Amino acid sequence: MLIPLANDPRDYAWGSTSLIAELEGREPSGRPEAEVWFGDHPGDPAVTPDGRTLDSWIAAEGKDAGIPAPLPYLLKLLAAASALSIQAHPSKAQAEAGFAREEAAGIPRDAADRTYRDDNHKPELIVALSDEFRALAGLRELDATRRLVAELGEGAAPLAERLNGEDAALSAVIGWLLSDGADAARDVIAAAVAGDSDEFSAELDLVRTLDADFPGDPGIVVALLMNLVTLRRGEGLFVPAGVLHAYLEGLGVELMAASDNVLRGGLTPKHVDAAELVSVLDPAPALPPVIRPRDVGDGVRAYDVPIADFALYAVTPGVTPATVPLDGPAIALATSGAPVVAGTASQDEAVLVPGAAVLVTPDEGAVRASGSGEVFIAQPGR
């Protein structure tokens, strides 16, 4: 069975006014369009053709169709024109403990200062649809960060001092910046805005942009500690638990575990709990977690991620159809052309346009894509 899904874009302030409209081939609405959700998450469930939300449809029809409730993943289109908040997500164990703690404290789940809104982790994968997708991901190798900070001169001296020593703890530096280091952060930002560097020119340009959008925000200095990443179309960025990240600009397909647990580290007017962020943070410097797809069949590429919550495939059918076996309920989302998606058991099919999606029930056994264009298929991982 194939169930068409639709949803309206969410109008977060950082959203693009054009990227989703261009993908869908329509006139822009004039408002920021940040995300379109294709899933059953109660925060904004997709809508089925009979007018029911997907969570309601699954509650009524899902058992007979072999669909668990809720789905273990959430698929989105994401379009950023400016930076999202710097953030990290907890592990499953951290989420369970934090959720139980806040439930016991009686903090309403929709409270502005609530951190754990559910008991799940939120690993996520974004794949670039635009020619370039810019992001911050993970903490830069420490020697490189020391070189960057040294180029900022006396204005960054307090930060440089905290980064000295073989045992310099980046988590402690981040905690200081977000709690007691606001004055020092403004000095570092001023030095970076006025600074010049051959090696780190892109990072300093980013500081200027962020300071225009978030004047004096300590998170701008947190951004200076992070890897600046530019994805090319089709490349992915996987963010596991504890890894700091922030999307900056571009259009992408995002797939994540179904959770709303976000610990923020700046670039936002929302609640920042520095101590809790530091408690879940992975402070180890590492290369950006870029994922390039792996060919797994004719016209089928897989994005390998080390979790069981979700799997993502990019499908570009050729002369012969491309087939993806199912490991559970899948959502197919078209991103170009006019792909024809079919279930191999029922032979039911749907012609998709860019931005259109269908739920494919697991009893279909596999999804077959033909025609032209590209379709992304999300389903549970193995």
Rank of each mutant, 00 (worst) to 15 (best):
M1A: 14
N7V: 02
D8K: 09
Y12Q: 13
A13G: 04
T17K: 12
I20M: 04
E22V: 04
L23Q: 04
E27K: 12
G30W: 11
G39M: 01
S56P: 00
W57H: 03
K63R: 15
A65D: 04
G66C: 09
G66W: 00
I67F: 02
L71R: 06
L71N: 05
K76H: 02
A79P: 00
A83L: 12
S85H: 11
I86H: 08
Q87P: 07
Q87A: 09
E102T: 05
G106C: 07
D118F: 00
K122L: 03
P123G: 03
E132S: 14
F133T: 03
A135G: 08
L136A: 06
A137C: 15
L142C: 01
D143Y: 06
A144R: 14
R146I: 11
R146D: 02
V149E: 01
G155H: 08
A157W: 00
A160W: 01
E161L: 13
I174K: 07
I174N: 05
G175F: 08
L177E: 04
L178Q: 05
G181T: 09
D187P: 05
A191K: 00
G195V: 08
E199Q: 13
A202F: 08
D211V: 05
A212S: 15
D213L: 15
P215F: 07
V222A: 03
A223R: 14
L231M: 06
G236Y: 01
G242S: 09
Y247E: 09
E254L: 08
A258F: 01
S259R: 01
V262N: 02
G265I: 09
T268S: 11
K270I: 10
A275R: 13
L277N: 07
D282P: 05
D282R: 08
L287Q: 14
L287M: 14
L287F: 13
I291K: 07
P293A: 10
D295S: 15
R301C: 13
Y303M: 09
Y303A: 07
V305G: 03
P306T: 01
A311R: 10
A311L: 11
Y313A: 12
V315R: 07
G318Y: 13
T323A: 13
G337A: 13
P339G: 09
P339V: 11
V341H: 08
Q347T: 13
D348N: 10
A350Q: 14
L359Y: 00
G371C: 12
A378I: 10
